[in-house]
Amino acid sequence: MITVEAARDRARTKLGRSMPEWVAEPQMEPVLTIALKPPTERQVLLDQNVSVEWATGWRLLEQKDQVSGIHVEWESRSWSRVGQQRVPVRVHFRAPDDVAQFVGGEAAHRWRRMSDRAQKIRIALDIGTVLRPLLSQRGNRILALSDAAFTQVLGATMWLRDHPQNLMRPRQLPIRGVDSKWFTEHRVLVQSLLNAAGFSEAITVLDAETRIRFRILDPSLRPGGLGDVTAPASEVRGFTVSPSVVFVVENLETLLSLPDFPGAVAIHGSGYAVDLVSHITWVKQARVIYWGDLDSHGFAILSKLRSHLFDVTSVLMDEKTLLDHRDMWVGEPKPHRGRFSKLTLPEETTLARIRDEGDVRLEQERIPWEAALTQLMRSYDHAMEHSSVRDRPREGREA
């Protein structure tokens, strides 16, 4: 038996899932029907009070909402021991507003808010059939805006539709109240509204290109003595330097602390920005040593780097380093739960230990610098040795 409250829960779920569709398109009647699963004669005999209470609940609802679009359908049951009975079998809702009325509370408030804002978008931008995919993708974002913010987003979208802009930076947009910070926060929604209105090319904003910082650790490789460089990724790719070894480190402090290493360059990996690092030609041609935090994201980044670069060795990301610095552990706020296909068996063992210990984290800067430097030098020596072997001409071939 589906009680009134159980039906209300189902209607609430349906309203949440169907909101973009119901807001965007006129609905055929009824929009929702819920089967009430009336009791059998045997169930009535086992507990007649429960059955009576269930039917009474639906009768009271019908009396209360008799002028609304909520209709309770009844059928007669002829039972040998209970006799003739009328039982509710289905409840029908004529329109989305009726579902919202039945549900009430926050869900009904969200429905009214979405309906109102969808209508304003429809009128302001003359959006018809594409309103549904827009609301499916951006409905939660639209609902989350304050009234003032929604008005401003819609106003900015209308202005950009009527005044197409080309090749501008966010701070150059000549819209009252719209600065670069505002545009960064609302850009995706504004662009989605423009796309839905058929003006996807109304604005082309030039974003600041991601910058990469690296240090040339070999004084002999520094052009004009320049050793600490921060530049757009496209310019770093074209930078003329040919290191044998490249250190990729996750934290900036580590990058700044590294001493000179002949034939080496160090790059600030900056977390998942290693994607950019892996496309630098002179990085691809070198042996890469990666040192990240000992946590799930550190290993995720390592695996990601290896998906682009074949020759990547990790350092200070082993189980012994983890356990030797137990007193330095902190909790990882949002651990990565994925599986990483490019880890070695020892690295997988270390990651498993991190998770078994309760998703702990050992940040690289917490490892005493002298101990860390010793391990870095060993990895560097090993990489240089293998680099020399790799670069050495084979017998029978010209040098």
Rank of each mutant, 00 (worst) to 15 (best):
F150V: 08
F150Q: 05
F150L: 06
T151Q: 12
G155D: 12
A156Q: 02
A156E: 04
T157S: 15
M158E: 13
M158Q: 13
L160R: 03
R161L: 13
H163M: 11
Q165M: 12
N166G: 12
L167V: 00
L167M: 01
R169Y: 07
P170M: 06
P170H: 06
R171C: 03
R171I: 03
L173V: 14
L173Y: 02
I175G: 01
G177A: 05
G177R: 05
V178G: 02
V178S: 03
V178Y: 01
D179T: 02
D179W: 03
D179V: 01
K181P: 02
K181H: 08
K181I: 08
K181F: 01
F183V: 05
F183Q: 02
T184S: 08
T184E: 12
E185F: 06
H186D: 09
R187K: 13
R187T: 08
R187N: 12
R187Q: 11
L189D: 05
V190K: 01
V190E: 01
Q191L: 14
Q191C: 10
L193K: 01
L193R: 01
A196E: 06
A197R: 04
A197F: 09
G198F: 05
F199W: 05
S200W: 08
E201Q: 13
E201Y: 07
A202V: 09
I203Q: 00
V205Q: 00
V205N: 00
V205W: 00
D207G: 12
D207I: 03
D207H: 09
E209L: 07
E209H: 09
E209G: 08
T210D: 11
R211E: 11
I212H: 00
R215A: 09
D218K: 07
P219D: 02
S220T: 15
P223D: 05
G225N: 15
G225A: 15
G225H: 14
L226T: 15
L226P: 06
G227D: 13
G227L: 10
T230L: 14
A231P: 04
A231F: 04
P232Q: 11
A233S: 15
S234Q: 15
E235Q: 15
E235S: 14
V236A: 10
V236E: 02
F239L: 15
F239Y: 15
T240S: 13
T240I: 11
V241W: 03
S242R: 13
P243Y: 14
P243Q: 14
S244R: 15
V245L: 11
